[in-house]
């Protein structure tokens, strides 16, 4: 499995995303630029320029028409994937830490940072899909989650409900219509939740945390289904489609990297068996912590973005699809 090294960023990666077909890979970084790449050869297709701060988060809709991004310049922008033009920008009092499209691409949820006297807020916007440049400035819903601040979020499979991951390690469900916390699991993690990725049908999701664990939760009950315990703080977790694997990435904190050797850093991407909770393999390569992992929705390749500024795209070998390390077991998606 020879990776393609994408060297288009000057600073560490914050989030990478595949489009639904898996032919395009979007990457956001602290160098203010969003790049889009062809996955099959690693050629850069273009950039989305305009942000004046770290781009913390991106998401692409299921038709690959619109891209939304959130940045430390206190704006959230909507881009045309095809032309690279910025269609609309929303301004907020603080940085945008997380954005996510809804299932039907009609809505966006975003989290703004708790800073400078402003509370952390979650906003939901309706997207005018017909005319990309004319969007409503005002959010459809706006609320401030009480308690520990929210750091990651996504639409759930239940209408009106948003899943959030919090700094305290809490995972919760909010009804955005009312702003009420519908369901919560205070002890989902014991440290900040770093990533939250949903299964294809949004009925379960995986979270990673600095507490060195990743967990699969049931979306409706927030019950912990599986736990994957590693020996390093985790920054990202992704669910492999069609295969019973979970991909975990992390490593020593960025600030202590310079004082630890490569070996101690544990900058590998780990493959864990989703059901048996056993580690099945590791992929080395990054020389800094892995910040973000994404898997193509078709399940034929995955990419990891690191603190080292590189994105590594791995196309799975034939053996990955053929291998049945645990024998013939029918596992439901």
């Amino acid at each position: 499995m020879r990776p393609i090294l994408l060297q288009g960023h000057e600073r560490s990666l914050t989030q990478i995303k595949f489009n639904v077909e898996g032919d395009l890979l979007f990457s956001a970084s602290k160098d203010h630029v969003i790049n889009v790449w062809y996955t099959h050869n690693g050629e850069r297709l273009g950039t989305y320029d305009g942000h004046n701060g770290t781009v913390w988060t991106i998401d692409v809709d299921s038709q690959s028409r619109y891209l939304v991004s959130g940045s430390a310049d206190n704006t959230m922008r909507l881009w045309s994937v095809q032309t690279g033009k910025c269609l609309y920008r929303w301004e907020f009092p603080t940085a945008v830490k997380r954005v996510s499209f809804s299932d039907d691409d009609e809505q966006i949820v975003c989290i703004t940072e708790q800073r400078m006297g402003h509370q952390g807020a979650i906003r939901v916007f309706n997207i005018n899909r017909e005319e990309g440049t004319s969007q409503s400035k005002e959010p459809l819903a706006f609320f401030n989650p009480i308690g520990s601040k929210a750091v990651v979020c996504a639409f759930s499979c239940v209408p009106n409900l948003i899943i959030t991951g919090h700094e305290s390690g809490k995972v919760a469900l909010f009804d955005y219509k009312t702003g009420d916390e519908v369901q919560s699991n205070e002890r989902a993690h014991s440290d900040v939740v770093t990533d939250l990725q949903l299964s294809d049908d949004r009925s379960y999701f995986v979270t990673s945390s600095k507490d060195k664990c990743a967990r699969i939760h049931d979306t409706r009950s927030l019950m912990v289904i599986k736990t994957f315990t590693t020996e390093t703080p985790l920054n990202s977790a992704a669910l492999a489609p069609n295969k019973p694997y979970v991909l975990l990435g992390g490593g020593q904190d960025a600030m202590s990297v310079t004082t630890t050797s490569l070996r101690q850093g544990k900058f590998e991407t780990r493959f864990w068996h989703k059901i048996f909770e056993e580690e099945v393999g590791r992929v080395k390569g990054h020389f800094g912590p892995v910040n973000t992992i994404a898997i193509s929705p078709r399940g034929d390749c995955y990419a990891s973005g690191g603190e080292d500024g590189f994105v590594r795209v791995h196309h799975f070998d034939e053996t990955y699809f053929r291998a049945k390390p645990y024998g013939d077991l029918e596992i439901e998606e």
């Binding site: 639904v20 299932d103 499979c157 299964s199 294809d200 049908d201 949004r202 009925s203």
Partner: peptide, 11 residues
């Protein structure tokens, strides 16, 4: 109606 996600639809 919710059984299939976007990726599954794609397939």
């Amino acid at each position: 109606e919710r059984v299939r996600g976007p990726a599954a639809k794609l397939e």
